[in-house]
């Protein structure tokens, strides 16, 4: 550091430089740590002179005017409720129905505030003292950084608001769908309760009926069913197949009617026992006199389950 630079630093401390001299000093300070320190030290010393200025009371309403001006600007530094708090509160209100998103939003805001504070501290630590030019530069840098953080935060908040709105719409749609499905399920349950079908497949132990098939679908609630027979041998003249329902509560099987198969030995027919059957334990098919009998007499060819 030479005498010329010392001179520039001294003049700068009193804000006497302009134009090329100011730029020359600023440039030299960037690369010369010693000059930078002297510049800062002299500026601190110079401003100490303000302690010796004779005080003059400002107008009585000055404090009120300053307060009003700070308030009127709004923004993050306004008196009263800070902008961050307002935004935070809005975030909470928006996310009232979606607590997780709201907490995330709040955490993001806290993180951003911490990041900004850390950035300010880091800058302060990195630059032990500042010249006016450095201070202006630092102020601009901090303002830019703050603006960038605020913009970033507002973008994130806008994105979150959109997402929250989208989630709300989807939630409403899902609720509607759930209501529909619940109604359908209730209806099906009701139908299922009303039907309560039992299906029984029977096979015969009688040699002639070894290839035959008998299926009974029994509706317990309606106490009626459907009988399907296939590959049944033709019965001899004067005889008929007769279906029986065995109820454990009754001493004898209850007749469910005469069954007539076609030429191919096939039949599908609805049946209903002649007496009410509370609990159909078994079904049986026997060969009876033509037209059927009230009480089983002939041989049983199918029984089950």
């Amino acid at each position: 550091m030479d005498e010329r630079q010392e001179e520039l630093a001294a003049l700068n401390a009193l804000h006497m430089l302009e134009g090329d001299e100011q730029r020359s000093l600023d440039g030299a300070c960037v690369s010369d740590k010693e000059l930078r320190a002297l510049n800062t030290e002299l500026e601190q010393v110079a401003v100490e002179l303000a302690r010796l200025v004779t005080p003059v009371e400002p107008p009585a309403d000055m404090k009120k005017r300053i307060r009003a001006k700070i308030r009127s600007r709004g923004g993050p530094g306004a008196f009263g409720v800070s902008r961050g708090v307002i935004v935070g509160a809005a975030g909470w209100a928006l996310a009232a129905g979606l607590a997780v998103a709201s907490v995330w939003l709040w955490n993001e805001r806290s993180k951003l505030i911490e990041q900004h504070a850390a950035a300010v501290r880091a800058i302060a630590a990195a630059v032990p003292a500042s010249s006016p030019a450095e201070e202006r530069k630092e102020a601009r840098s901090l303002e830019d950084e703050l603006k960038s953080i605020r913009d970033d935060y507002e973008k994130k908040q806008a994105a979150l608001n959109t997402e929250i709105e989208s989630l709300r719409i989807r939630e409403t749609e899902a609720q509607t769908r759930i209501t529909q499905l619940t109604a359908e399920a209730d209806s099906l349950k009701q139908q299922n309760a009303q039907t309560q079908m039992e299906i029984t497949i029977l096979q015969s132990t009688v040699w002639e009926y070894r290839r035959s098939e008998m299926i009974v679908v029994w509706d317990r609630l309606r106490r009626q069913g459907v009988l399907m027979l296939d590959k049944m041998p033709r019965v001899e003249a004067g005889k008929d197949y007769q279906l029986w329902v065995v109820d454990t509560q009754k001493p004898d099987p209850v007749s469910a009617g005469v069954v007539t198969v076609d030429d191919k030995g096939v039949v599908k027919t609805q049946f209903k026992p002649v007496e009410a059957v509370d609990k159909a334990a078994k079904f049986a098919l026997s060969v009876e006199k033509k037209g059927g009998v009230p009480k089983k007499e002939g041989p049983v060819v199918f029984i089950g389950p």
Binding site: A50, P55, P58, M62, R65, I70
Partner: peptide, 27 residues
């Protein structure tokens, strides 16, 4: 405020200017 106001009056030689700068500076 009193001493800084005194400084601004010395520098600006104008009471109205000094008050405006005082206000802006405190903001």
């Amino acid at each position: 405020a009193p001493r800084l106001h005194g400084l601004l009056r010395q520098m600006l030689h104008d009471e109205r200017e000094a008050e405006e700068v005082l206000q802006d500076s405190f903001v």
